[in-house]
Write a protein that binds this DNA or RNA. Structure first.
Lengths: 351, 351
DNA sequence: CCGAGGAGCTTGAACGTTCAATCAATACGT
DNA sequence: ACGTATTGATTGAACGTTCAAGCTCCTCGG
């Protein structure tokens, strides 16, 4: 069965000895006895080839361990297969505890679609890196998180016509795709949980209202109270950003007269602070005082007892974000859609 | 002063109205009345043009807001200007508290050199993503961290001839570039600090020996003791991975007879656990019991009082790693070098 | 029997840059 | 004055892929 020997050599070998040059699409084509284009078609599973050719091509790809050159691909197809994630830059921010898990989830979700994640943070001007990344066409789209109100990043990306998906809601006027948890429902579910376990004197500890989440979680707490016809004094609602200050306020509250029996918090980090304060006063968390967290990441395990916490389903959120973003990239259209993903309560021993 | 008008049109405009096509190198060349190549040379600051041409080119670049197309560049130059960072994948691992700060530092350091960071994590097989990234030429090099002993990742990258720099030491036989803190000295400096403040009954709480760091920190603790001629009972050395178990052990230790007056820990997360346990027993941390952490990230502020901690200088480390990695990429040579960066003690109120 | 249409495959061009070679003009040493 | 560098610049080709045509053969309806 005389092979036609179009040009019998294998993958382009460097003339010398050691140089093991990677094979390109032409090598595959040669081995499979088809044209470049057919290989390309198989690779991008388009139509226009027989089943038999397909297997021959796949076999050749396998044999040569061929993988298409990313840069060459992007150059022609205008797709980098990379998404950019703008991470918050503050080194010591308490929200950071959440971000790592989010990144992990994003990376995984992106990988499921054959994409990579380029993580960046602002240097000087917040939009600078965005502009650069868009200009050099370094990514196909962006994932944003931690929006505060009217987000300049969202405005810029919209303006520039670059696909993006937001975790959280932002820039009300803009057509955009977002994924969010129902923070109000989530916080109020924490109240439900505590009331269900017999608590009536509740308190709330949260961040001051910098991001929409902070506002909504407090709102959810208030709604939860209202649902059960409970009223709490205003001093039982503590908000702040500096953990030291929050700690002091909590100490005062717990040490005061008619202290709360349960505390809902806006994050696991804050819950840890509350646990700390409670223990300083000799209270046994989980027995003398119930505490719920909000996040469900690794911080939940840092306290003793392990926190009962409203878990933010990062995997689900990341999957939706990536899927939405990729859909926008494929369609080229920016329709306004929002997805609310449900939270659940991860039960620990703190409440 | 009649312009020569080689071909007077500006950046390639889409015929229609709205389409604002980006300008390419030819547009710049045209506007500056030089050739592509000269623009390219200016861009990559090579030699071979007059100062006057240079300014003309720069002016043109400025005017057109030109930025070279990343993919085109990589295709020809074989440089992606991207580095890969393999992040640990476990969602709930306590080491995670450290990773985010490290990523932030890496991203910043890379940006200082005009590079981006592609963060990834293993899916199934640990090396799978490495292989893929190398095959498609998605990055110029890798940054590794969290090496445990003989790291298969390092072996693979060495084998494949891909530049990489490691935070921590690994794979003893391999020529490689690493940056590390002197964990032994760091941990022993914590002992010095505590002894300096009058403590004699010390304890250690660390992770069990999975990574070299864990081992060295304990070793440093022992060295510190030896330096001061102090002996501690073996039960004062607690190692484990599950935070709950560590908590229980610490409770037992602190509640026992002749409990330590100071605890050195192998991470801020563990220190937080110790603080928790101490408070459960009614001890005032910073007064009745001194606790030192190890890391210096945001976790340090999660406890009350704020932790006194051995700070790992992530910015410095990231800068060195990136610089080393880029040097390897430029030179194409993998020489064996190691850099030990000093730690310092971030003084809080816990010790 | 012819022409339209489609399935299956191929070919030249293009994407935007850098590489390698070349060229013109000026400066230099003897 | 003449060959030879040196400086400043240009041009064709190449990187490895996908796009946009095109080509060939076969089928099928009229």
């Amino acid at each position: 069965m005389a092979e036609k020997q179009t040009e019998g050599r294998g993958p382009t070998q460097g003339a010398g000895g050691g140089g093991k040059a990677r094979s390109d699409i032409n090598d595959v084509a040669r081995l499979a006895r088809v044209s470049r284009q057919t290989v390309s078609n198989v690779l991008n599973n388009r139509t226009g080839y027989s089943e038999e050719t397909r297997t021959r091509v796949l076999r050749a790809i396998e044999a040569l361990d061929y993988q298409p050159h990313r840069a060459a691909r992007s150059l022609r197809s205008q797709r980098t297969m990379q998404l950019g994630y703008h991470m918050p830059g503050e080194q010591l921010a308490a929200e950071n505890a959440f971000v790592l898990g989010f990144i992990q989830a994003l990376v995984r979700a992106a990988a499921d679609h054959g994409h990579h994640v380029l993580v960046f943070t602002e240097q000087d001007d917040e939009l600078e890196v965005f502009r650069e990344l868009v200009a050099i066409r370094g990514v196909d789209g962006f994932i944003l998180s931690g929006s505060r109100g009217d987000d300049p990043r969202a405005h810029y990306l919209h303006e520039a016509g670059v696909p993006f998906a937001v975790f959280g809601r932002t820039a009300p006027g803009l057509p955009q795709t977002w994924v969010d948890i129902d923070s109000v429902a989530a916080a109020s579910s924490a109240v439900d949980y505590l009331v269900g376990r017999g608590h009536e004197r509740l308190a709330y500890v949260g961040y001051d209202a910098q991001k929409s989440w902070d506002v909504e979680r407090l709102e959810g707490f208030r709604k939860g109270l209202a649902d059960h016809g409970i009223r709490v004094p205003e001093r039982s609602i503590i908000v702040g950003r500096a953990l030291e200050a929050v700690h002091a306020d909590v100490l005062r509250l717990l040490g005061g007269k008619r202290p709360p029996t349960a505390v809902v918090t806006g994050s696991d980090v804050l819950a840890a602070v509350v646990v700390n304060a409670a223990k300083s006063l000799g209270l046994r968390v989980g027995q003398d005082l119930a505490v719920t967290g909000f996040d469900g990441g690794f911080v939940r395990h840092m306290t003793e007892p392990v926190l009962t916490s409203v878990r933010i389903p990062v995997d689900r959120i990341a999957a939706e974000l990536i899927a939405c973003c990729l859909r926008m990239i494929d369609d080229g259209t920016a329709q306004s859609t929002g997805i609310l993903v449900p939270t659940e309560i991860a039960v620990g021993a703190s409440a």
